[in-house]
Design a binder for these strands. Sequence first.
DNA 1: GTCTATAGTATGATAGAC
DNA 2: GTCTATCATACTATAGAC
Lengths: 226, 226
Amino acid sequence: MRKSRNRPSAARSTADTDLTKRAQILDQAAKLFRRHGYAATTLRQIAEATGIKAGSIYYHFSSKEEILVEVMDTGIRMVAAAVREKVDALPAGASNRERIAAAVEGHLYGLLHHGDFTSANIRIYGQIPQSAKDRHRIVRLEYADYWDRLFAKAQRSGELRSDVPLSVMRLFVLGSLNFTVEWYNPKRGSFESFARSISALVFDGILNLGKELRRPPGRRRVAEPA
Amino acid sequence: MRKSRNRPSAARSTADTDLTKRAQILDQAAKLFRRHGYAATTLRQIAEATGIKAGSIYYHFSSKEEILVEVMDTGIRMVAAAVREKVDALPAGASNRERIAAAVEGHLYGLLHHGDFTSANIRIYGQIPQSAKDRHRIVRLEYADYWDRLFAKAQRSGELRSDVPLSVMRLFVLGSLNFTVEWYNPKRGSFESFARSISALVFDGILNLGKELRRPPGRRRVAEPA
DNA sequence: GTCTATAGTATGATAGAC
DNA sequence: GTCTATCATACTATAGAC
């Protein structure tokens, strides 16, 4: 069913147009899936938003579900790429806590800068057909494993609290980050200050510890011997 | 359009049957909305799950959207009721921090014990028609205001950190709680221990502060003078 | 209070012209 | 690579029998 591969390598402009159209369809699909859900979005809507007719979509995709799976995969991949970039940019001797902080920042960045794909992924994952979940599974699991290893190492080194089950901690953190796509408003301050706030809450919680213990924004507290 | 009100007050069994059927429809609708979304759920599915035929639903509801709005409202009301119960049970002199802790516990309780209505609400809110959002708006806003006041008081009394915008803090907390419906698994431990874990993370964050600073489960840290 | 039957509309997908 | 036209199916909602 895959067309539009293996084209004459010279035809640059044609190739670009083709890639662009495919990408356009995915962009519009992500936007519509995010706003109205998968089932409520029709191929006619996607087509109209892309500037073509419904039937033409089948030149680029073999089914509605194929569009869905590609939108879902893209959502995860964008976030995963942003996380790896941030974490890999750390100096060699970075602590596990610093690695998690970088991952949190990267996750938020990927999440909030590719809004439609990531929001669609988070919003509709629980509602898509099982067959789509199955095809999306590998990409999703791989990313979950990444965080799993990050947290496991950090707890072994004693940097994370040990009175809360590790899986609860990991799911809580990822869940709280993911839900920011539902309420983050770029008009109310810069992304950087937002990320600092979220990071502070994840690491230190909401309580006021007194002026003596609170560091200036951007720096985070480490264990404070009594 | 409203039938089945003002019936002969003697007919207890008839009344029960009627209420039960209406409630059954809502129960099944909530379950299906949660799993497949609003648009993807058909009246035939709701009817079949309830043990009647699609046309019969119109005796109890005037439209699909009316079912939706009632499911959405119920989701919020159940959580709000659980929160008020927990907060109102506190002694008169309770601190704002204790009030928030009780609200967190109540919110989690309401959320995870009425899974279908609350999960449906959280999952599909962003996708329902604008007309349904408008009709759902008042119930939703009222509950948001409750938390708003709770947080505002706590920050004024200095119990909450002041280096993070209050709205970010409130939305972060509610969002992280809400997202637990996506991953909470009652088979992996009791609700009570789960609630303690989440509460600990919300108030204190994920870092290990050293054995000296960590209180036994259930108790929470207050400001610790240096 | 539930049923059957159906009106009116929209959907995903396909075929074939250009 | 996109179009028009259409098939087969499904949907919400209504009407009227029981």
